[in-house]
Structures are given as structure tokens and as C-alpha cells.
Simulated scan of single mutants.
Amino acid sequence: MPDPSQTQTSQTQTRLPLSRDRILVAALAYADTHGLQALSMRKVAGDLGVEAMSLYNHISNKADIIAGITDLVAGEITLPTPDFDWKGEMRARSQSAHRVLVKHPWAAAQFQAGHPPGPMMMTYLDATLGCLMAVGFTPAQADHARNTIDNHIYGYTLQKLTRPTRAREIARAAKKELKSIPAASYPHLHRRTEELANATSAEVDDFDFGLTLILDGLDALR
């Protein structure tokens, strides 16, 4: 029969020390699974097997957790590098950001919430500006370009998370909508909705379509 004192000592030795990083990783997993509104200090502490009060040695409050996990998400995005093919770099960066934000469904709104940027977010922003400025954009132009691209990323991501995106799902939704769009009153809208209702394969991806228009337009500014 094991000695209880030895078992307790073993558990103490194997238990990982609580840290800000551990708390944020646990909070990120919780937010991805249950949503940001369900996130709380108590629930994160429960997942870590500690008392909620112990978190306050490392985290100020829920807002601090949200800012921290938002910064972790920024750290997952592929960074652009100064390159002659700046449009290719910005496209790769944009596609990566879109994938990451879909993976963390709560994060797109937080990227726009005005949190003071953490170190990973600042690295992400700095690399983006650096890529654009390296090919001739002024600092102001680079910042406007970044904002325009990011607005496209965030808007499309939120749409993808709330609306059907597969051809079959779009066709099913269009067939339902078509009944409430009389051709005599709305001929152009009816025609387009009818096309979508009868589509059997995906059309041009809206994300890449919009991104191409933005990048080509920005190219004319240099």
C-alpha cells in the first residue's frame, strides 16, 4: 500500500507551476470550445485544477485574459517579409489570418475591439507595415493599406462564420430566398439568386476575389 505522504509529495512535484502563459493557453482553449461570453476566471481555474483566486497573481481580470488570448491568436498568423513580390506576401498573410480567425471564431471581433496591442500583435502589425514600406509605400499609405486589407479579412471571416459558404448550402438558401424575390419587381436580384439556386459548384472565391481587387488597387498608388 503506497504511503499517502509519498503520493502527496509526488503529486506536488509533478504539478506544473501556475503562470500567465499556462492561464492564457487554458483560456484560449476554453474560448474556442465554449465561446468568449462563457469564459470566466472561475471556469479557467477549474480547467487548470486551481482556485480562481490564484489566477489573480498572474492575471488582472477577464479583460486581461481576453487581451492576452487575442495576442496569442495574432501570434499564429504567418508574417509577411519584405519582398519584391509584396502582393504575394500580403496575400499569404491575409489567407493565413483568415484561416486563423476561422479557427478561433470569437477572435475576429476582438481584433477590431481596440485592445492595447500585445507583443505578438505588434510584431504582426510591424511586419505588415515593413513589407509595404519596403516596396515604396509611405508610412501613411502602408497603414491605410493594412487597414483596408484587414477590414476585408475581418468582414469576410465574420460572414463565413454566420452564413453558408459551400455551394450546396448556398444553393439551398438561394432556393428559399427566391420565393420572396418576384422577378417582376426585382429582375436583377431574381436573376442572380436563380443562378445561385441552380449552381452545382463553387464560384470564384469571394475572399480571393476581393483581396485581388484591393491589392491591384493599392499597386496603382505606389
Rank of each mutant, 00 (worst) to 15 (best):
M53F: 12
F84H: 13
A97R: 07
Q95L: 15
H104L: 03
I77H: 01
G130N: 12
L48Q: 07
A52D: 13
L72S: 00
T128H: 10
R91C: 12
R99E: 14
Y56S: 14
L48C: 10
H58E: 09
A45N: 09
T78Y: 05
D64L: 08
I69W: 06
W86V: 14
V44I: 15
L129D: 11
Q95C: 13
G114D: 06
P82Q: 10
I69G: 05
N57S: 11
A108C: 04
I65K: 01
L55G: 00
T128K: 03
T70E: 03
K43Q: 15
T81D: 11
M53G: 09
G130D: 07
G49W: 12
S94G: 06
L101W: 02
V102K: 14
G68R: 03
D126P: 03
V44C: 06
A45H: 04
P82H: 10
W86D: 08
P82A: 08
D71Y: 02
D47H: 11
M120D: 08
G118P: 05
P82R: 11
L129N: 04
D126W: 05
N61Y: 03
D47A: 03
I77A: 08
H98Y: 13
K62L: 13
Y56M: 15
A63W: 03
L129E: 06
E76Y: 12
Q112A: 15
S60G: 00
M53T: 11
R99K: 15
Y124C: 11
H115R: 03
I69V: 14
A67E: 06
Y56D: 02
D83L: 10
D71L: 10
Q95G: 12
H104W: 05
A108R: 00
G46T: 05
I59Q: 01
E89R: 08
H98Q: 14
T81P: 01
T128P: 02
A109V: 11
W106I: 09
I69D: 04
W106H: 07
N61I: 00
L101A: 04
A67V: 01
P117I: 09
L129V: 09
D85Q: 06
T78A: 15
A127V: 10
A108T: 00
M53V: 12
E51D: 14
I69Q: 08
A109Y: 01
R99H: 11
E76L: 15
I77E: 02
L48D: 07
P80I: 07
D83Y: 04
M90L: 15
M122Q: 15
P82L: 13
A74Y: 14
L79Y: 03
D85I: 10
L48G: 10
A45P: 05
Q110K: 12
A108G: 05
G118N: 09
G68A: 07
R91A: 15
P119D: 05
G88R: 11
L125I: 14
D47Y: 02
V44N: 07
H98A: 13
